[in-house]
């Protein structure tokens, strides 16, 4: 418990960034039906289950053209 309090100023922003990434990516996956490859279900799993890296992979490689 002592450790958690010591690292709290670090853990909070990390958690917030992670949540922001997850939510923006998830909204984008749900709103845009076109992907460069894969389908919606795959991308939802990638974005939700792989922390931090999943949403980045989606935006860099998976996001389809408008």
């Amino acid at each position: 418990m002592q450790d958690i309090i010591e690292y709290l100023p670090f853990l909070m922003p990390l958690l917030i960034i992670q949540l922001i990434l997850l939510i923006t990516a998830l909204i984008h996956v749900l709103r845009h039906p076109n992907y460069r490859f894969g389908n919606r279900v795959i991308w939802i799993f990638v974005v939700v289950l792989i922390q931090i890296v999943g949403p980045i992979i989606y935006f860099v490689f998976g996001r389809g053209e408008e």
């Binding site: 960034i17 922001i20 990434l21 923006t24 984008h28 980045i56 935006f59 860099v60 996001r63």
Partner: peptide, 9 residues
């Protein structure tokens, strides 16, 4: 294109 967003995070 969300590239800015990715780089910042």
């Amino acid at each position: 294109t969300y590239k800015f967003f990715i780089l910042i995070t």
